[in-house]
Amino acid sequence: MPVTFSIAFVAGVTPTKWTRIWAERRPEVELSVFRTSIADQELVLRDGRADVSLVRLPIDEDGLSLINLYNEIPVLVMAKDHFLADADSVVVADLVDEHLLQDPDDVPEWRDAAVEVRDGSRRPLPPMRDMDETMELVAAGVGIVILPHSVARLHSRKDVVSKPVEDTAESRIALAWRTVDTTPDVEEFIGIVRGRTPDSSRTNAVAAGDEPVKKEKKTAKAKAAAKAVRAAAAAAKPATARKTQSAGRTRNSPSPQAGKRRGGR
C-alpha cells in the first residue's frame, strides 16, 4: 500500500507552492491535500485525518507543535454602494453602527464598540450555510463582515468591496502537527515550508544514531596556550649552522660588484 502524507488547510491558505516542492523531493510519498473549516482545523489533526494542518490561530495547542508562518490584514467587506466603499481604509469607529454578519467574538475590537451590542438591539443572524451565502447578504446591504484578506479575496464578487481595517488584530497562519508524531515526513514538510534546501533538510542530514561529532571551538585561553607551546618548541630547537662554500659565492652572499654603478671603473 503506497505511503500517503496528509495536509489540511483552512480557506485562504494556498499550499500549492509547498506541495509542488514536495512532489519534486519526495515523489515516492503521495500527498493528500484537503481544505477544512475553522471548526475542524484542529480536529483533523487530533483524529489523524491530517499529518499536518495549516491553521488560522488561535487553536488549542495542547499536544500540538506550531510554527508561525505569516500574518494577514483584516478587511471590511461591504456592499458596493456602502458609504465607506470609496475609503482607502477604515477604523472600528467607522463601523460602530453597522450590523456584523458574524459572531461578534470573531472581531472583539468591533464587539466592544458596537452600538447594537452595547444597547442590546443586536438582532439574530439570518441563516447562512457558508461564506457564499454570507456574501449574498453583504451584497444586498443586510450587513458587513470583517475577514482575513485572503478569505475575502477567495469569496470576492463584483457587487461587494473590501477595505483594510486599521485597528483590528491581524490573522495569524501557522503550521501545526501532533508533537508525538514528528515523523521524518513531518520534518521534511517543515523544511519545505521554512524554505530549506534539500541539502539542509533535517531528514537528509544524518540517520538516527549516526550523529556527527561536533568539533569544539577553541577558547581564547586555549589558543594562547597552544601558541605558547609552539613558541617554546621553536626555542628548544638547536641552531643550524649556515652552509658555506670555500670558493665562489653562496646564494646568500653579496656580489663583489654590489653597490657599484653600472659602467663604473
Score class of each variant (00 low, 15 high):
159 D>C: 08
164 P>D: 12
143 G>E: 00
150 S>F: 00
154 L>A: 07
174 A>H: 04
184 P>A: 05
149 H>E: 13
191 G>I: 10
152 A>I: 02
224 A>W: 15
159 D>I: 07
154 L>D: 01
147 L>A: 03
242 R>L: 13
134 T>I: 00
237 K>W: 02
211 E>M: 09
157 R>E: 01
219 T>M: 11
205 A>C: 02
187 E>K: 15
174 A>F: 07
178 R>Q: 04
174 A>M: 08
234 A>I: 11
134 T>G: 00
191 G>V: 02
198 P>L: 03
222 A>Q: 14
190 I>C: 12
192 I>N: 08
197 T>Q: 11
224 A>V: 09
222 A>H: 05
158 K>W: 11
186 V>M: 09
201 S>L: 12
154 L>I: 07
162 S>W: 05
239 A>E: 09
179 T>C: 12
232 A>G: 13
153 R>V: 04
175 L>A: 06
162 S>R: 10
196 R>S: 05
193 V>A: 07
240 T>A: 14
193 V>S: 09
175 L>M: 08
151 V>P: 01
199 D>V: 09
198 P>E: 02
186 V>C: 03
240 T>M: 10
235 A>F: 07
169 A>V: 05
204 N>A: 11
224 A>S: 07
171 S>G: 13
134 T>S: 00
178 R>N: 13
171 S>N: 11
213 V>W: 01
231 A>Y: 10
164 P>Y: 00
170 E>D: 14
193 V>N: 08
210 D>Y: 00
136 E>A: 03
187 E>F: 12
206 V>I: 10
223 K>A: 02
218 K>G: 06
222 A>P: 05
141 G>T: 01
192 I>R: 11
233 A>I: 09
169 A>M: 12
210 D>M: 04
172 R>M: 11
191 G>L: 05
214 K>F: 04
149 H>F: 04
182 T>M: 15
166 E>F: 14
221 K>T: 10
219 T>I: 07
211 E>C: 13
189 F>Y: 12
167 D>A: 09
225 A>K: 10
150 S>A: 04
227 K>H: 14
223 K>L: 06
161 V>G: 01
